[in-house]
Design a protein around this nucleic acid. Structure first.
Length: 423
RNA sequence: GUGGCUGUAGCUCAAUGGCAGAGCACCUGACUGUGGAUCAGGUGGUUGUGGGUUCGACCCCCAUCAGCCACCCCA
């Protein structure tokens, strides 16, 4: 056997089983997105590197993007995220579009990272944004969409949760501690982000490194341990009230430690987690003040989030929320009795198809047991046999592999019976 | 980018440095107009790749590639 050329590191082959899951996920995301009136869009998979130079984290482009020169010498990037493309698309038609804009997308992205559990180099991502909106209720809508997705897939509030915070609130609270310098705030946000990942002593040491006084450090801990902090924020109060109206509050929790790395978030920020012991982040998003800031154009606030297909796939599998696998490609298999009846079988298969049943006609002349075994393996429930007796009588024999019984009748009647049995 | 674990039949895995095996799957038959079950027989391997040590390497050493895991980062 020839040596098989291996696939590119961090990519996945989608065999029919996996493809069925991917399609199911796409369908589900579409249903959820469209139920809130969002429109599907997409950008190019290839972009010039300049698009990401200004925006995004520096690391995302420099360390994590697939970049290569095209034949003309331009540096081309396999898109590592969608937001910059979205910003351009919106900016280009800022005067023509009707705001607020509700857009969603599901497509492939690439990041040159070391593959591990829940992370590949080629992955799909659900992006959904509400652009040109600036209220806590808009923010709540996005969280509600996320919750609607959880509900639709059967994930329960004790399995997954959305944790919410507000950067404006945190800004105000840090001000109270005498932390007002912008650079300092950035470092403190980073410190907050690291809390759960470090030992308490190391984290305390890190706080000194960041430049916090002992009093400020104690104050910060008090803030981070206060699950009622949101009550200090009129926006958060409206947000949670709205969430109740959306019927999504069961899944949503306030958590002052949610900050998020991306710098462009300016208000509400949220992250969804698997609540299990080894739980990891499923999706993240938040409110931004100006989507098109770096592209020019009018200030345009909005809110959105992104969810990768790999992590959510693992979570859905873990909680048994994936659709059943091994679904049959056809309802009927029309077998070939022998060479002389091959054409009869093909004609029969065509009639089954025309009468609305998904039908495979066997195209090889092999022994009957083998064809039955094929049907069994493929999970095809009904096997049609056109033998000499049937052919001369203008009938077919239909065997129901699920029940084990069989009957002989005309094709029209057979189709009716099969449809009843499938219903 | 850093560290750890693992690579043996299509799959899941065995094999003190001394003949490379099992289960499942596959093929054939028992069963010439009927799948699953059972029984009998059979096919299947450059032990990831390249070096080294040794009389002898799946086993020990080095390198490399891949997968997994943890960091890092994030979705």
């Amino acid at each position: 056997m020839e040596k098989i050329i291996p696939s590119v590191k961090g990519t996945r082959d989608f065999y029919p089983e996996e493809m069925a899951i991917r399609s199911w996920l796409y369908r589900t995301l579409r249903e959820v997105s469209e139920s809130f009136g969002y429109q599907e869009y997409d950008g190019p998979f290839l972009e010039k590197i300049d698009l990401y130079a200004a925006k995004s984290g520096e690391e995302l482009v420099k360390e994590q993007a697939f970049v290569f020169p095209d034949r003309g010498g331009d540096l081309i990037t396999l898109r590592p995220e969608l937001t910059p493309s979205l910003a351009r698309m919106v900016a280009q038609r800022q005067r023509q579009l009707t705001f607020p804009l509700r857009w969603w997308s599901f497509g492939p992205f690439w990041r040159y990272e070391r593959p591990q559990k829940g992370r590949t180099r080629e992955f799909f991502q659900w992006n959904i944004d509400l652009i040109g909106a600036n209220s806590p209720e808009s923010d709540a809508e996005l969280v509600a969409i996320c919750v609607a997705f959880f509900k639709k897939t059967g994930l329960k509030p004790d399995q997954v949760g959305v944790f919410v915070n507000d950067r404006r609130l945190m800004d105000a609270e840090l001000e109270k501690l005498g932390i007002s310098d912008a650079e300092m705030k950035k470092r403190v946000f980073r410190l907050i982000d690291r809390r759960d990942k470090m030992h308490p002593e190391d984290w305390a040491a890190y706080s000194i490194e960041v430049g916090l006084s002992v009093d400020q450090f104690e104050g910060l801990k008090t803030i981070l341990d206060n699950r009622e902090l949101w009550k200090n924020s009129p926006e958060m109060q409206r947000f949670f009230e709205s969430l109740r109206a959306f019927g999504a509050d069961e899944y949503v929790h306030y958590n002052p430690q949610v900050i998020r790395g991306l710098e462009y978030y300016t208000g509400t920020v949220f992250e969804a987690y698997d609540l299990g012991r080894d739980g990891r982040a499923i999706l993240g998003g938040g409110h931004y003040d100006n989507l098109v800031a770096d592209v020019g154009g009018e200030p345009l606030p909005g809110v959105g989030f992104a969810m990768g297909d790999v992590m959510i796939g693992l979570v859905l599998q873990k909680y048994g929320c994936l659709p059943p696998l091994g679904t049959a490609p056809a309802d009927v298999l029309v077998t070939v009795f022998d060479e002389t009846l091959l054409v009869e079988s093909q004609k029969a298969a065509r009639q089954f198809r025309e009468l609305g049943l998904r039908t495979i006609g066997y195209t090889e002349i092999v022994r009957l047991p083998r064809q039955l075994k094929f049907a069994d393996r493929m999970n095809i429930r009904f096997v049609v046999i056109v033998g000499p007796d049937e052919a001369s009588a203008g009938q077919v024999t239909v065997k129901d592999l699920a029940k084990g019984d069989q009957f002989t009748t005309t094709i029209v009647e057979a189709v009716e019976t099969i449809k009843k049995l499938l219903a």
